[in-house]
């Protein structure tokens, strides 16, 4: 039984990371209707930038510089790519995001190199025993940081003026425009926030697995999470992330050996498909009623 819980908890901790990436997707989708396929590449860029900056400056300054890079990226994206595409069909915006993802990959790797880099930001990685279960302190720290990030975001969206403006934009573009909220700037701020979320995810995964191209593939792990929770629901992203993380880990350990292993790559998609069959807009997604 202890083994079961160990697998479950390590799955949940992986799920936290999925939630982070999926949250980035949901934030941008809700605010601007862009299905931001480049979310994983933003994590990669953040990881690459942080490793690059760490070679010349202390950690706190490097983090600030990384966030600055993400902010520049966010503003550039919104004002160069998505401003001319305002009011285009969602499909076009999605394709633009695919293009953006290639751009970020290419530029990031051209600047900081394609080789795999280690990232160490000084969080100890030792196993501690709680009851009968062993957990890595590293995972715990990042679980805590992710929770703090979510709490911070909730506070930001509920209490600050900018946050409320962003929520207004997410609810109804035209109504928000009519009360004087600058739409493009609101989008840019949303992209910056998504960039910060991507940075946290990128740093967490990067210090685990090394910063390299495959980091951008965590977006693929986050996609089933996203559609399971509902594309436009932050709460859905968090819950579905935990659910998928736990279930895929359990499936890999307990079902995997019978079918040849490696089912982690597609198991989340199966779960998501199964749920979508009964709830086509995910668990918490907004149901769209179509009229002719």
């Amino acid at each position: 039984m202890a083994f079961f819980f160990e697998v479950l908890i390590s799955g949940l901790l992986v799920g936290v990371m999925y939630s982070l990436v999926a949250m980035g997707f949901a934030l941008i989708y809700k605010a601007s209707g862009v299905f931001n396929f480049a979310q994983g590449d933003m994590s990669l860029l953040a990881g690459l930038a942080l490793v690059g900056f760490l070679t010349v400056m202390p950690l706190w300054l490097a983090l600030i510089c990384t966030v600055a890079v993400m902010a520049i990226l966010a503003y550039g994206t919104v004002f160069i790519i998505f401003r001319p595409l305002v009011a285009r069909s969602p499909l076009i915006l999605f394709m633009a995001a695919i293009g953006l993802s290639f751009l970020i990959q290419g530029i990031g790797q051209a600047i900081w190199g394609t080789d795999a880099k280690g990232l160490n930001i000084g969080i100890p990685d030792v196993l501690v025993q709680i009851g009968e279960i062993y957990i890595s302190t590293f995972d715990l720290t990042f679980g805590g940081m992710a929770a703090a990030l979510v709490a911070g975001l909730v506070w930001f969206f509920q209490k600050t003026r900018t946050g409320r403006a962003l929520r207004a934009v997410a609810d109804d573009h035209e109504a928000a425009l009519s009360v004087g909220i600058p739409l493009l700037r609101a989008w840019a701020v949303t992209w910056v926030i998504a960039g910060i979320v991507a940075t946290v995810a990128g740093v967490a995964w990067g210090s685990r697995l090394g910063v390299q191209f495959s980091l951008s593939l965590i977006a693929l792990k986050a996609l089933p999470v996203l559609i399971l929770g509902g594309i436009d629901s932050i709460l859905g992203a968090i819950l579905a992330g935990l659910l998928i993380g736990a279930s895929e880990n359990l499936a890999e350990v307990f079902i995997g050996p019978y079918v040849g292993g490696g089912i982690q790559t597609f198991f989340p998609y199966l779960v998501a498909l199964l749920v979508l069959w009964f709830k086509p807009y995910g668990m918490f997604g907004k149901e769209i009623i179509e009229r002719v």
Binding site: I81, M95, G99, L100, F102, I104, G106, I107, Q109, T114
Partner: peptide
């Protein structure tokens, strides 16, 4: 080569869409 391909490819998609 891979990087410049990615950049040109991504840039072209965006360019064409706009």
């Amino acid at each position: 080569r891979a990087n410049s391909e990615a950049i040109v490819f991504g840039g072209l998609i965006v360019f064409f869409l706009i």
